[in-house]
């Protein structure tokens, strides 16, 4: 049996002086998606940030294609797309400019995903392409952040509450984005309190790794 694409072993994270979770293990393989669940304040965001290399866990190791992500450095981030609580959209630029420049800054040669027009159409922002992003509504900004996933074409998606501020119809249409990503062999780690329907997504209860419940 070959190693799973993404493997986490014995992970512990601390916030301030409080241990959020300890001894966490998780494996995700190509075409799999994991829904990390748990009540507020459990450390879901911290977990996701640690998994994509933004924050450093105090113990444990995270391996991508069998190698430690701290050793891979940029070779790992080149394969991860992260959508956090903040959209990462610059209000001064138009929706299309945001995507075009993101794809230039963040893709290595030969790894470009969809064009910005196609991606904007997919998330239903075609009409807003030339509007400054600061004039978009919260939900539209969120959709723009998700459109970045399509432009970048990275195998591992790390999504922190991707559906906040989205209307019910958009949640359905955009959760199918994750399904399409899985179908093409992509991996996804999702945290969401909003209900969404995605066949084949695996639940992961974070609470199992938290020793003390507050």
């Amino acid at each position: 049996m070959s190693d799973p694409l993404f493997a986490v072993h014995g992970l512990s994270c601390v916030r301030g002086d409080r241990t959020l979770f300890a001894g966490l293990s998780l494996t995700v393989d190509a075409g799999e998606a994991v829904h990390v669940r748990g009540p507020n304040g459990l450390g879901k965001t911290t977990l996701l940030r640690a998994l994509c290399g933004l924050s450093r866990p105090i113990r444990g190791e995270i391996r991508w294609r069998g190698e430690r992500i701290s050793d891979l450095a940029e070779d790992f981030t080149a394969e991860v797309a992260y959508v956090g609580h903040l959209n990462g959209i610059q209000g001064e630029l138009t929706a299309a400019e945001n995507l075009r420049l993101a794809s230039r800054v963040f893709t290595r040669a030969g790894h470009a995903g969809q064009g910005e027009d196609e991606a904007l159409a997919r998330v239903g922002l075609r009409a807003q392409a030339d509007r400054p992003a600061r004039h978009l509504s919260q939900g539209q900004k969120r959709r723009l952040a998700l459109a970045r996933l399509l432009v970048l074409r990275r195998p591992l998606w790390v999504l922190d509450e991707p559906f906040t501020a989205l209307d019910v119809a958009s949640v359905t249409s955009l959760s199918s984005l994750i399904g399409e990503h899985m179908a093409t062999g992509g991996l996804a780690l999702v945290v969401s309190h909003q209900a969404f329907d995605l066949p084949g997504i695996r639940d992961f209860e974070l609470a199992r790794y938290c020793r003390t419940r507050r």
């Binding site: 994509c52 290399g53 933004l54 940029e74 070779d75 981030t77 080149a78 991860v80 797309a81 992260y82 956090g84 609580h85 903040l86 959209n87 990462g88 959209i89 610059q90 209000g91 993101a102 800054v105 963040f106 893709t107 290595r108």
Partner: peptide, 11 residues
């Protein structure tokens, strides 16, 4: 706005 966070994820 989170752009810096994204910049950290640059390849």
């Amino acid at each position: 706005d989170g752009s810096l966070e994204q910049l950290l994820m640059s390849p």
